[in-house]
Design a binder for these strands. Structure first.
Lengths: 214, 214
DNA sequence: CAAAAACCTGACTATATGGTCAACATATTT
DNA sequence: AAATATGTTGACCATATAGTCAGGTTTTTG
């Protein structure tokens, strides 16, 4: 995972890698891949630029390391859901999870968005196949629920796309939201936005909203 | 609008400006501002790079011209809706319009998204104020409908954000959607996606879906 | 406590790219 | 048909930046 045959296993200073990746995450999210300057990453991490290159042999290597860490955020309780579970519970929890990521990891969300807008040239390397498998599996589950008449929605693909779209939006478009609401969203605002989204999606699927999410 | 005191009103060759802007739109959408090379814009427009600089004195000038054109897409029938109108009709039509823009102008949508992810440094110059006014007005309208019990949703802001999020998603994340669905969305797929989204949002607001959108 | 491995970094380089400029070409006006 | 405004372009430049390298320091290991 993290030992991209870079250096033969950094011991004490794997600490530095973390600092650099954290700094790089912020820079990539704000400036994009091409717009990010290694010098700025180094400055943010309070290390000389050469040190950054020492751990990650190239800008691309650094970017891939950042991306790899970001993709781990896709893991969710929804992965293990089965037909036995309650659709309303599962979906509400999934939406809440996604919203929580947007709140706590907005940079990760932005980098993911930038990558996809760019045509996902790097994601495909180590994400594509498992992502497709995951999708097939989850679409299958949702379709079963639809067939059983438990949820009412025209298409499981579009349902998932719309959930992702809305939850990601609160991270990716935070600048616009801040302008239009007059101030940045706080934790409390996210709680309300999450409730609103769960209300919209579950009601939209003719599901009853679980008590803990209403 | 288009005569940024650049050149004293190009006559025959305002034609070139259009060619350059169209080329730039594609490049900026795919590569981002920093990632876009003027040479590539010029190549795509089949003109020498110097000619691009002749019409748009700088890369930033070109970008702003592109952005300005994109922002005109925000105009919508929803702008003129009043309390008298039928909320279901108005919202369904608005969603359909937004989806149509995602289908026919994906580059514009992507550039807008990139700009906002970047913190909207340029949008604020000539979009911010009117955008805020528009939002206040439309939120007011929706709130009236909510108060009248015509639509059931917790918050007009989040309703609009979620509509934008979903409709934009089909343009911005087309690469991911193509991977997961196995092929790029065609016009017919957009028709289905639009129906699915209208179903989700209107049902989510406890509105009846107008016949022409079901 | 050596020796080796890992870590650190200032000085440098190759290259790419936004932008300038001056000479030239073509339209437009009087 | 001058004269003037507008359009065209190759050659050039200043600058920024990813990446190299050699010589150093610190840490780990036997």
């Amino acid at each position: 995972m993290s030992d991209n045959k870079n250096v033969k296993e950094g011991r004490i200073s794997a600490h530095n890698k973390a600092k650099i990746i954290a700094a790089a995450e912020k820079e990539f999210a704000l400036q994009g891949y091409k717009g990010t300057r290694l010098q700025q990453v180094a400055d943010r991490a309070k290390l000389p630029k050469t040190n950054v290159l020492y751990y990650f042999h190239s800008k691309e290597g650094l970017y891939l390391a950042v991306l790899e860490q970001i993709l781990s955020l896709w893991n969710s309780a929804f992965d293990q859901a089965t037909v036995e579970d309650d659709p309303a519970e599962v979906l509400a929890r999934y939406i809440a999870e996604k919203m929580e990521i947007s709140r706590t990891k907005p940079e990760a969300s932005k980098i993911f968005a930038l990558e996809i807008i760019n045509g996902a040239p790097n994601l495909n390397k180590f994400f594509r196949d498992q992502h497709i498998d995951w999708m097939d599996s989850r679409v299958g589950l949702l379709q079963t629920w639809i067939d059983q008449g438990k949820i009412n929605t025209p298409d499981p693909y579009y349902l998932l796309f719309n959930i992702w779209a809305c939850s990601q939006h609160y991270a990716d478009f935070s600048a616009q939201i801040t302008e239009l609401k007059g101030q940045a969203m706080e934790k409390q605002d996210f709680t309300e936005a999450t409730k609103a989204l769960i209300h919209l999606i579950l009601t939209g699927c003719e599901l009853t909203i679980p008590a803990e999410y209403s």
